[in-house]
Nucleic acid binder design. Structure first.
Lengths: 190, 190
DNA sequence: CCTCGTTTAGTAGTTGGTACTAGAATCAGT
DNA sequence: ACTGATTCTAGTACCAACTACTAAACGAGG
């Protein structure tokens, strides 16, 4: 087995650490077959905190109820957001999301990405889906990176209308029109 | 302020630590106005692990929760099915399915229940959702038992039209009309 | 007063680090 | 092949937050 080059090792390190935050430097040194010092230099360069801080961070996500709204309750990772205007998220179809037989993503994950993006883009204390018309244009396969874009068309005080399109490598795979019901604490009467 | 007696302090200690697992012995010693050693004796007697272990435990719960949720194949348990005709499933809204703030189920779980029911009721090697029009009629709350019923309206050789209604204690909470694409071959050319 | 439960103090050792210095190995270009 | 930079390894001193242990002080009851 050949040792990795620095940059390659650092990429893999980032992946490893984010998929399993519980790995100590010692374990990582074994995995990559380098010294502990090398691992520490890598973490320093990549701004990866020590194992205890990583664990603490994961644990905080549970207790931190404020933060969790924008982080936890979303399928896919939000990569750009302008509240009450538009939002972008990335969802990668993994083993758990696809049919075993043909490796095509189950529709409800695409819906979930779009739906949670709609919830996130509405900057209101309460936002619930009211109706949706959706089209699954092309199947999404295992490993596909789905970029979903939600654009708020109008907000009339109670109902927001949002158009969502999802693409894999620029190709449309899903589109939908969502009506979201929302209320703000006393901002609007209702 | 009077110092607590041993037993009383230990009770309060248990409460404190379980409500905030991030407290170090040093902090606890300050809180109860005793020495660190006393806190450590207490933890020993009460079998409370050290701060880092407590944090690790919380973090583990968190990652387990995410994993078990994302790996869910089908949402809801099928309780009655007549292939190509109708199907019933039960879904119970649990902690992981609801918004933390208001304990209302996220829309995509209701969609997922309906969607996977539609996939199941089509007796074909391949069944993919093509379009859907859906209505979230009433919010579903934590603990609600949602019964979803899918009825196949027509199947024309490639597309099946299915009506789904979901109820909690006889009250409509969700309805939708799904068009499912299906083939015997397992081919799909978008 | 003495005793026993309780509390405090202090020491040595552990884990998983940070921060730093210094030297060895490797590679890239001339 | 030699030079110089990059990369890796080694080693030291230090830290937080402990465990595990010993020993002493306190405090109220018999």
């Amino acid at each position: 087995m050949v040792k990795y080059k620095k940059t390659e090792r650092q990429e893999l390190l980032l992946e490893r650490v984010s998929s399993d935050p519980f790995l100590t430097d010692e374990r990582l040194a074994e995995i990559f077959k380098v010294s502990i010092q090398t691992i520490r230099l890598d973490r320093l360069e990549l701004d990866i905190p020590e194992v205890r801080e990583r664990i603490k961070h994961v644990a905080r996500e549970e207790t931190d109820k404020i933060r969790s709204l924008s982080l936890q309750e979303v399928i896919g990772e939000i990569i750009d957001i302008e509240l009450n205007d538009h939002a972008l998220s990335l969802f990668i179809a993994e083993e758990g999301h696809v049919f075993k037989k043909n490796k095509i993503a189950r529709g409800h994950y695409l819906f979930a990405q779009a739906n949670s993006l709609c919830v996130a883009v509405i900057d209101q204390p309460l936002a619930l889906t009211k109706t949706a018309q959706i089209d699954f244009v092309r199947p999404v396969k295992l490993g596909d990176k789905v970029i979903s874009k939600a654009v708020v068309e109008k907000m009339d005080g109670r109902i927001a209308t949002i158009q969502v399109v999802s693409k894999v490598e620029q190709r449309l795979v899903f589109k939908g029109r969502f009506e979201m019901y929302y209320t703000g604490e006393g901002e609007y009467d209702g």
